[in-house]
């Protein structure tokens, strides 16, 4: 997967006081004295036993992965669902009011956010929305640090307000990072479907314009966007890395960033595997949804 050419023991070796024997032992612990294919095979065979190996500080990777995964997935899945709803609604609205003020407003907004890097959106919301707001009310309304308060305890319901305070901004940030291109796509998909022959036939049947929109235009225009959603899911995970950094979330993204900068092989591999599996899963889901929405594929 990745030919690892960086040396995790670089800092150790640079220290003249480290006895060569220590380096040898550490190298052996990390299997660095073995060949690359051997190491890869070793890692790979461990996977089948659910073993992700140890990180550089000799802690097992697996529990860390699952711990951080929970934090990240909560945010990503919520943002994904909300972004899809927002993008589809705005896309439809924009297409129906084509050329009008609303359409132009939506188009401008989508372009604006398309051009804004995730970290700029995140920082802006953090410094110029959350912090002034909290200052104004003299208490924490929108949290900007971490996925929850360090001291929070009790049942899930009890912690919900606290979680929500921590959730809101990162989720909004992620939504703003992805909804634009989906809105643009949905708009053009609707416009394209509107002019199709079968929509003309549906209209010529004498069914109400609302029904034409819901059952014939929207239903058909949703099919192509599924591919886009599945493909962009990878980008959403990338956005999560940045969002977690901005809001100091202890999620997978930051865990991975730390792992990558320490050249922690097993952490990085575990994260890459996780994202790959997630993206593939989403593409599978997309295929299933495709079959569900489009009978031409179902029968193939």
């Amino acid at each position: 997967m990745v030919a690892y050419s960086g040396d995790p023991l670089f800092p150790l070796k640079m220290n003249p006081l480290t006895p060569p024997a220590t380096i040898k032992i550490r190298e052996h612990d990390l299997f660095l004295d073995h060949s690359l294919p051997w190491r890869y095979w070793h890692w790979f065979s461990g996977l089948f036993h659910g073993n992700f190996g140890l990180d550089l500080s000799n802690n097992p990777v697996r529990p860390q992965l699952f711990l951080h995964m929970g934090v990240t997935l909560r945010m990503v899945v919520l943002a994904f669902v909300l972004a899809v709803i927002i993008a589809v609604s705005l896309g439809v609205l924009s297409a129906l009011k084509r050329g009008g003020l609303i359409d132009r407003g939506i188009t401008f907004t989508t372009f604006f956010f398309l051009a804004t890097p995730v970290f700029v959106t995140g920082l802006f919301l953090k410094f110029y929305l959350a912090i002034p707001l909290d200052k104004y009310f003299g208490r924490q309304i929108l949290a900007t640090n971490g996925a929850q308060s360090p001291l929070a305890s009790g049942s899930f319901l009890h912690r919900l307000p606290d979680l929500a305070a921590h959730f809101t901004l990162p989720t909004i940030t992620l939504i703003l990072a992805v909804f634009s291109s989906w809105t643009i796509y949905q708009r053009s998909s609707i416009l394209e479907t509107m002019n199709m022959d079968h929509v003309m036939l549906a209209r010529s049947k004498g069914i109400s314009p609302r029904r034409v929109l819901r059952r014939h235009i929207l239903r058909n225009a949703l099919i192509p966007i599924i591919t886009v959603l599945a493909l962009d899911f990878a980008g959403l995970l990338g956005g999560a890395v940045v969002t977690e950094t901005v809001y100091s979330w202890n999620g997978l993204g930051r865990w991975f960033l730390g792992g990558a900068s320490n050249i922690d092989l097993n952490v990085t591999l575990a994260y890459l595997l996780f994202t790959a599996v997630l993206v593939i899963m989403f593409n599978l889901l997309a295929d299933i949804a495709y079959g569900f929405l489009d009978p031409r594929i179902r029968y193939r």
Binding site: G6, A234, G235, F256, L272
Partner: peptide
């Protein structure tokens, strides 16, 4: 290349080739 987020690959690669 599309399965893994571009940013993720870049993070890994930039760490490897230029140590951050």
């Amino acid at each position: 290349l599309l399965v893994v987020p571009l940013l993720t690959i870049l993070i890994v690669m930039s760490n490897i080739f230029s140590s951050g």
